[in-house]
């Protein structure tokens, strides 16, 4: 096939792609095992900021996925490196369960605002506190800007709307560290020792997974599970490399056509 490229790395989204909350997507474990038998590197990339890397890992083990903790690359890890680089002390708008990944970071007299997915903190009082800090010059760091995510009881607001609101209130732009930022994808593939043009991303979020990866020079495969809504693939220019029903179908396509 003309223009065909050999893929050396596969980036895989977690929530909505391999599982929805505590249920694995049908056939996903077996598909991951098949992928691992091919000569291709695998990394799990996620904007799931409610949870620490360790708890994400443990959940996937419980769901019988074959992986190692170091293979998970999260937007929280990316935020932590940014704080360390600039020696900032953060106000962390994160679920308690994600705080583990910030162990050792000084949070006294905060001079930076970090926003993740934190339904418990997205209330008027806490948002006002964050707003006043930013007006006083604290940088706004967004772990990601997803519009919404899927819960058992339906769609729910992600951190993106709250970040967009704080940006509007203060006239500042947030530094976004998670998907769909180009830096996030390039950092993930560089840890696998390859370039973006040698990688493919599989995810259920048209903009953040597929659009972000394609903007970074990778191929993007959109799966119709998780938060996928009919017509999402039409929102992307260029369109996804492929849109398919679920993760196992994406793996079949990679094994047949991209290696």
């Amino acid at each position: 096939m003309a223009g065909r490229r050999a893929v050396k790395a596969v980036l895989i989204d977690l929530s909505g792609t391999l599982h929805v909350e505590d249920t694995a997507v049908a056939g996903a474990q077996e598909a991951l095992s098949r992928l691992r038998q091919a000569s291709v590197a695998v990394k799990f990339v996620t904007n799931t900021t409610k949870e620490s890397r360790r708890s994400l890992y443990e959940r996937l083990l419980r769901l019988n996925f074959d992986l190692q903790e170091q293979e998970i690359f999260t937007s929280v890890s990316a935020a932590r490196s940014l704080l360390e680089q600039n020696q900032h002390r953060p106000l962390l708008l994160l679920e308690d369960s994600a705080l583990e990944d910030f162990t050792g970071i000084d949070t006294s007299e905060p001079n930076a605002v970090v926003v993740g997915l934190a339904p418990d903190h997205f209330n008027y009082q806490t948002l006002n506190t964050a707003f006043r800090m930013i007006l006083d010059g604290a940088p706004l760091i967004a772990i990601h800007k997803a519009r919404y995510y899927k819960r058992k009881d339906g769609l729910a607001l992600g951190p993106g709307p709250f970040v967009a609101g704080l940006e509007y209130a203060t006239g500042c732009r947030a530094s976004v560290v998670g998907k769909p930022e180009k830096a996030f994808f390039t950092q993930a593939v560089s840890e696998l020792g390859c370039s973006p043009s040698e990688a493919v991303m599989i995810g259920d979020d048209a903009r953040d997974d597929v659009g972000g990866a394609q903007d970074a020079g990778m191929l993007g495969i959109l799966v119709r599970t998780g938060k996928y809504r009919e017509g999402d693939e039409n929102k992307l220019r260029p369109p996804p490399h492929l849109t398919c029903d679920s993760f196992p179908e994406a793996v079949d396509h990679i094994l047949k056509n991209l290696l």
């Binding site: 707003f131 519009r147 607001l157 709307p161 709250f162 967009a164 609101g165 704080l166 940006e167």
Partner: peptide
């Protein structure tokens, strides 16, 4: 007791969430 967020902030949040 200080500056408070107004409705526009939450309008932007919903605009962003729902495109």
């Amino acid at each position: 007791d200080g500056l408070k967020l107004d409705v526009g902030v939450f309008m932007k949040a919903l605009e962003y969430a729902c495109d």
